[in-house]
């Protein structure tokens, strides 16, 4: 099976000379379709940097990121934007909804960029919001929703455009344990039902318990990996 994302000898440095910090060093990874992968490691180990590079949000200093077998470095800015729009969903730690758009509009945003017809957009948005338990709250602005509800909208937004992979940076970090658990169950269910690929960066043991694959990272290096048949 062809990997959705592949990194080869990936390196990212900050600073220079004596103050040079290797945030990532020679990371080789392949994320295959349908995985529910957790990248785990202590704070400052390079998890977020790795996700940024995998999603094309930053440029590596060394090595290559291949998105669906195409090197990011070979893509123009516009191609990369379009690639992210069409193939990658992002879930951020701090919900990160567009505050002036309603829950439905936030979900609709990417599909608008994709040029999907209005009727289809509306149907998909309402179905997705119902799936994440937000039926009846479609027209609420982010500040009219709880933290857990906002993160559900963020998940819905990431998934509604049917990307090949969802990159999530500590998605449960700002949620209470029950809300975090519910959200995790929901994402796990979507992964099982729709075969959508998830990659998390996390410290959360509950995510680690459910992950089909654990990638351990420390000081910018992959130090180990575990695979399970079922997370």
């Amino acid at each position: 099976m062809k990997p959705v994302i592949e990194t080869r000898q990936l390196g990212r440095f900050y600073g220079e000379g004596d103050t040079l910090v290797r945030a990532l060093h020679q990371v080789d990874l392949q994320i295959e379709p349908g995985e529910f992968t957790a990248i785990v490691g202590p704070s400052g180990s390079g998890k977020s940097t790795l996700l940024q590079l995998m999603g094309g949000l930053d440029n590596p200093d060394e090595g290559t990121v291949l998105l669906k077998e195409k090197a990011i470095s070979e893509m123009s800015g516009r191609e990369l934007s379009d690639f992210r729009r069409d193939h990658i969903g992002f879930i951020f730690q701090a919900y990160n909804l567009i505050p002036v758009l309603s829950a439905a509009e936030n979900c609709e945003y990417i599909m608008l960029l994709q040029g999907i017809p209005a009727a289809e957009r509306k149907a998909r948005v309402y179905a997705m919001l119902e799936q994440v338990g937000l039926k009846g709250k479609e027209q609420r602005l982010p500040n009219q929703l709880s933290g857990g509800q906002q993160q559900r909208v963020a998940v819905a937004r990431a998934m509604v455009s049917r990307p090949d992979i969802i990159l999530a940076d500590e998605p449960t970090a700002n949620l209470d344990s029950q809300t975090g658990m519910d959200l995790l169950d929901m994402m796990h269910e979507l992964n099982r039902q729709q075969g959508m690929t998830f990659v998390f960066s996390t410290h959360d043991p509950k995510i680690m318990e459910r992950a089909s694959r654990l990638i351990h990272i420390e000081d910018g290096r992959v130090i180990g990996e575990q695979r399970r048949d079922e997370g």
Binding site: L57, R78, S81, R84, R85, P99, I110, A158
Partner: peptide
Amino acid sequence: TYEFGVILAIGTRRLT
């Protein structure tokens, strides 16, 4: 700034 980061991340073109 953060919002722009988000909408760029989710695929908004710079021209937009």
